[in-house]
Write a protein that binds this DNA or RNA. Structure first.
Length: 496
DNA sequence: CTAGGGTTAG
């Protein structure tokens, strides 16, 4: 079952180097003869669109100051990831009123389709697919993967499957790749039995390869059914297909997930014995697996061993170690490892910072959390909504509501916008001090979130309402009541 | 986006 595998030595891609991009990777406008437009400030743009009435958004699009490029449109769509109605409206108006020199890219269409599918607005999804088709931009297999994934996530795996079976009607033929993709989508949404049945039914037609088998085995690992995973792999070998290092790494991770630590270690020793070319993924799995099981010493031992064996840790390996140190050891040690990785020339990424910031917040070291948050820009990774939510959450928990609000204020002006969680965390924090002014703030936040297309839970709404009535803010409460009638009607009232 | 390693707040 074990085969000899050779891995190329790790390139130095983890080191702090920013090589110049080849010309074909630069944004389109830099290749044209016209001078490049002034750099667009996405944050300013976001504010503009957020605060613009949908009816006058057209004027924003036609503003000669803004040079729309496909890159800028994608960035803006990304920024509005949590503001689905705004994002779609932005996409559509720009599409209707486009200048002769601008059309959406296939990637933007895929993005818009993803957003519409996330809202369960399937009418919009198919409208976009049709428009994409008429522009000869797709739909591509990727487009179908996106829609299928949203179906699966919405608890409609059958529709995901049917979509796959009808792809050819949209000019996109099924092949082994798309077959593997649909299997993976079903497995990742924990519909492993269904994926397995589909696999058994169609493996002959699509000539299932070792990737297909790996996907199904991984699916059984995800639901902690290791015997089933082994069974699938046994069949693969019987079919004459070779298992690869990926196969073994899948199984190794599966044992840890199923809390079978002893079996995981035994399996790893087997891998070593059979010389199947243990790599950085194998070691990262071990570090994370042992760490999560509370075996910090063994996690560190593995980490030291990999370096001795000539396998360089990656940023992901460091992230795994830092995370488990935060959870099961001490934040102090996690910070030491962080400084060590930086000293070696690694560039921490968003996950590194989020893990560490969370760890620091958790032990109440808010100042240091903020300090690390400030360091993020130096490594070209801006804090994202998760980073902000963590910090805001812990400030509020610690009773430092003002600081929480202050951090929230920074969020709106940056390249990351508050999401539903942000509002929920802040609004619930407005009730702990029993100050009447806090309730006014809660009311304001509630109105703002609804204006931005988020839907407060009934509980939140009633909580704010009652609070305002009890503190004698009848007028404000009335305003909220008007909102309530709008919210009650239907979840996405900004339908386009 | 054809498969394996890191984030989601107790």
């Amino acid at each position: 079952m074990f085969t000899q595998l050779q891995r190329a030595p790790l390139p130095l891609s983890h080191l702090k180097t920013h090589p110049p991009k080849p010309p074909y990777l630069l944004p389109r406008h830099s290749l044209t003869t016209t001078p490049p437009p002034p750099p667009q400030d996405t944050a300013t743009l976001a504010k503009l669109i957020l605060n613009t009435d949908p009816k006058t958004l057209t004027q924003t699009h036609q503003d000669p100051q803004i040079q729309w490029t496909q890159d800028l449109v994608n960035k803006t769509l990304k920024l509005f990831w949590n503001h689905e109605p705004k994002a779609l409206h932005f996409f559509k108006t720009l599409d209707h009123h486009h200048h002769a020199n601008f059309t959406h890219s296939a990637a933007s269409f895929d993005y818009a389709i993803d957003i519409a599918a996330r809202m369960h607005d399937y009418k919009a999804v198919w409208g976009l697919v049709a428009r994409m088709c008429s522009r000869h931009l797709g739909p591509s297999p990727k487009t179908f993967a996106i829609i299928a994934e949203r179906f699966a996530a919405a608890g409609k795996p059958n529709r995901a499957f049917k979509l796959f079976m009808s792809m050819h009607e949209h000019g996109c033929f099924q092949d082994l790749n798309s077959f593997n993709t649909i299997l993976d989508i079903l497995c990742k949404s924990k519909r492993v039995e269904m994926a397995h049945n589909l696999f058994k039914m169609l493996k002959g037609r699509f000539k299932a390869d070792c990737v297909s088998y790996n996907i199904i085995a991984n699916g059984f690992c995800l639901i902690k059914r290791m015997p089933k995973a082994l069974e699938v792999l046994k069949e693969m070998v019987e079919k004459g297909l070779n298992s690869s290092l990926t196969t073994y790494n899948i199984m190794l991770k599966g044992y840890f997930r199923a809390s079978q630590i002893k079996e995981a270690w035994k399996f790893f020793l087997q891998m070593k014995k059979r010389k199947c070319g243990i790599d950085v993924v194998t070691y990262t799995t071990l570090v994370h697996g042992f760490g999560c099981a509370g075996e910090i010493k063994r996690a560190r031992k593995v980490f030291d061993e990999m370096i001795k064996e000539g396998v360089l840790p990656s940023v992901v390996t460091y992230n795994a170690l830092i995370q488990v140190l935060c959870k099961k050891d001490s934040v102090e040690n996690a910070v030491l490892v962080f400084e060590e990785m930086v000293g070696k020339g690694y560039v921490p990424n968003l996950t590194t910072y989020n893990v560490l910031v969370r760890g620091l917040c958790h032990t109440g070291e808010m100042d240091r959390a903020l300090e690390f948050m400030g360091r993020m820009k130096d490594d070209e990774c801006e804090p994202n909504d998760q980073t902000y939510n963590i910090v805001i959450h812990y400030f509020c928990d610690a009773g430092e509501i003002e600081t929480g609000l202050e951090v929230f204020g920074k969020m709106g002006s940056g390249v990351c916008l508050p999401n539903l969680d942000t509002y929920n965390v802040l609004i619930s924090a407005m009730f702990v001090r029993r100050k009447s002014n806090d309730l006014l703030v809660a009311g304001k936040l509630l109105i703002e979130m609804v204006e931005r297309g988020f839907f407060p839970r009934k509980f939140t709404l009633n909580q704010v309402l009652n609070g305002l009535l009890l503190t004698g803010n009848q007028g404000f409460a009335k305003e909220i009541l008007r909102l309530q009638s709008r919210c009650g009607r239907l979840p996405r009232q900004f339908k386009l």
